[in-house]
Design a protein around this nucleic acid. Sequence first.
DNA 1: CTGGATCCCTCACGATACTG
DNA 2: CAGTATCGTGAGGGATCCAG
Lengths: 222, 222
Amino acid sequence: MSSRTYGQYCGLVRAVELVGERWGLLIIRDLLVGPKRFTDLHRGLPGIPTNILSARLKELEQSGVVERRLLPRPESSVVYELTEYGRELEDIVMRLGRWGAKSLGDPNPGETVTPDSLVMALRTTFRPEAAAGIHRTFELRFGDIVLHAHVNDGTIAAGTGAAEHPDLIIETGPALKGLMAGELTPAEALQSGSVRVTGNPELLEAFVNLFRIDPKPVHAKA
Amino acid sequence: MSSRTYGQYCGLVRAVELVGERWGLLIIRDLLVGPKRFTDLHRGLPGIPTNILSARLKELEQSGVVERRLLPRPESSVVYELTEYGRELEDIVMRLGRWGAKSLGDPNPGETVTPDSLVMALRTTFRPEAAAGIHRTFELRFGDIVLHAHVNDGTIAAGTGAAEHPDLIIETGPALKGLMAGELTPAEALQSGSVRVTGNPELLEAFVNLFRIDPKPVHAKA
DNA sequence: CTGGATCCCTCACGATACTG
DNA sequence: CAGTATCGTGAGGGATCCAG
């Protein structure tokens, strides 16, 4: 049995062999936001060596998860995008993200936030059941990162870049997690200055109702 | 940035750091079937070194995914079981298994099948929408492995061990995958002898309707 | 400038032996 | 049964270099 395989004939094992390697799911996370060039991926995955990124992309291409496409001239560039099979991972990635977010404490020293991870965080934490009949556009600014979220009656469209006519602009930092997890009320966040808004401040209530991190179950120790 | 971390403050990253290490999700797969002793896990994960299993269990315990419990006397033994937080992975593991099963071809040489992986395969491929109003008990024999599945009106209860009063006993091998994927009809499977049944052979139709592997989307190559 | 390939080094993992 | 100890190997980390 070669390394990187598990010697079991099992669907989960195959899945882990396909996308469970180091960096694998993070590459897919970024590609879920949209097709990307090699350099874009490299920028979005701080610390990944180029040879590893290259190897992962080849493996994912080989297994039919990612497709490599050459852009027409004059771009003459290469983009990677998910195949239909790869896109089927979206729901799994979002659920994993929702699960893992419950274990997020404060950022560890040196941990960064990338635009794509924030986009996926918005999609992940979005609660359709709280968005019935709601039509709002938010612009979120996190450090240098600017992204937008259009909420339209149970659906979310989030992406990088500014919003055109936002109902509310939210400027924040790591405090965003506490806000979404309910550890910090909107009023407290605004008062402390860890979150600043442009627009009707009461819309921040709507925001935290739409995007939420559930609590991690407490573990009763024997 | 130490190895095994990714330097990103992101829910998905945290999830991958918690359960994305080699063998991690497979340990969780087996624990989803039920609490297990160290030796049981070792048996169910062919090829895992004991030090790695030991290390993974410690990490999973530390992060609140797995709980280590000492059985009362005279057992005086140790069992590992999922915490509530760990059990929240069930849906994700099943979806991953369903996704990966689409990439299963024929077993590679040396690949084995374990009892727990088969139990999870049944739970994973079960289609509740096809089970409305259906009450059946199946016994599945795969090599030396014997397991049961009670289907009760949209719900499935599968576990290791024989069924008490099975409506159908299915004896099979690797051909099971082709059967569930629709690459092989029940009639063909019975005729070729790759699947043998005890009971009403027509119930094999019901079985393949209840447990199914969807096809992998075809990838249109440019 | 993008899209990698190549190099070396390190550490996590694999295999085996051994212990409370 | 439930691990720990030891040691070798190969995948990953990091820097550099190269082709289009």
